Amino acid sequence: MTILQPPVTAAPFHTPPLLHPVHDFGPRTLDFSRHVALMAIVNRTPDSFYDAGATFALDAAVGAALAAARDGADWVDIGGVPFAPGPALSAEEESDRVVPVIEAVAARSDVIISVDTFLPEVAARAIAAGAHVVNDTTGLANPGLAEVVAQTGAHLVITHSLAKPRTVYPRPSYVDVVSEVAAFLREKAELAISLGVAPEKIIVDPGHDLNKNTLHTLEITRRFNEIADLGFPALAAVSNKDFIGETLNQPKADRLAGSLASGVICILGGARILRMHNVAESAAAIRMTEAVLGWREPAYLLHNMGDVNEPAQP
């Protein structure tokens, strides 16, 4: 007997008006009207934000991606250049970092693969190697990226950020950060569509902490429904970020609880993809939230289901 109900969401949960709820990513199909995708993070950089180079070696990067898929990730995001300001990396060197990882993961798993890049040349090589998505954290600073996506039929994540790639943007200021971020994403989505990207291939990301201070990012988290109301699946990249550290006075190693709380708040505001470091814990938080929303059945039912109150399974 099924306990799933029709996809009607009760207040205070926000149901975004998705233009295209069902998305095909290679062998996988996701229905964002009743599923939240978990995007794991694999950075093949010697100076990554969270793991400080722990997955820089090729074997380590491939192993981390496959482990993430086993632990419940729907998706792995593979990057070769951090967002933080720093020297430019050539397309050749960036491709050398990400393409072998993508090839190895695509050969051994049906997990969705995105490449975190803003260079059209890298995007083209990554898609040819098996990537399904281009995750652009620069908000189409290079419109040629959209042209590559359009030509290949890949998905495109459009992220709000103000700085030129890998440059400093001191003291970002907004009159109304959420309205301005939403307007930016709407404009960039229209640009992508004008360059040939299909609307059903677009995902938007408000860019938590990217050229924003902690107060800005908390406001985006609180009003995430306004981002989701753009009609494209909305991604929340909240994992272990500085806004959590500053809010809770915690170093990166202690930010898991704050990351999970922020992620769930975004889901309730309409987020349909979470980009997270701690895969197993994030998968559990997502599955619990989906069950509360009526989208997922519990793994089993014993408690108060019979004449005797059965103990929970270990």
Rank of each mutant, 00 (worst) to 15 (best):
A10Q: 12
P12S: 06
L19A: 15
L19D: 11
P21E: 15
P27W: 10
T29W: 03
D31F: 14
F32Q: 07
A37C: 11
Y50K: 00
D51I: 01
D51N: 09
D51L: 07
G53A: 06
A65F: 07
A69M: 04
G72V: 01
F83D: 12
F83Y: 15
A91N: 01
E94N: 05
S95Q: 09
D96M: 02
V98D: 04
V105Q: 00
V105D: 02
A107L: 07
D110L: 04
S114K: 00
F118H: 10
V122H: 03
A124D: 11
A128E: 15
A129P: 08
V133T: 07
G139A: 06
E147K: 11
I158W: 10
T159Y: 09
T167L: 05
Y169F: 13
S173M: 03
V177A: 03
V178R: 01
S179H: 12
E180N: 08
A182S: 13
E187L: 14
A192C: 13
I193A: 12
G196E: 09
G207S: 11
H208F: 15
L210K: 08
N211A: 06
K212N: 07
N213W: 13
T217W: 08
L218T: 02
T221D: 14
T221Y: 14
R223P: 07
F224L: 04
I227F: 03
I227Y: 04
P233N: 10
P233W: 10
A236N: 06
I244H: 01
I244N: 01
A257I: 07
V264R: 00
I267N: 01
I267E: 06
G269C: 13
G270F: 07
I273A: 10
L274A: 02
H277T: 02
A283V: 01
A284H: 12
I286H: 00
R296E: 11
L302R: 11
H303N: 09
H303W: 10
M305V: 08
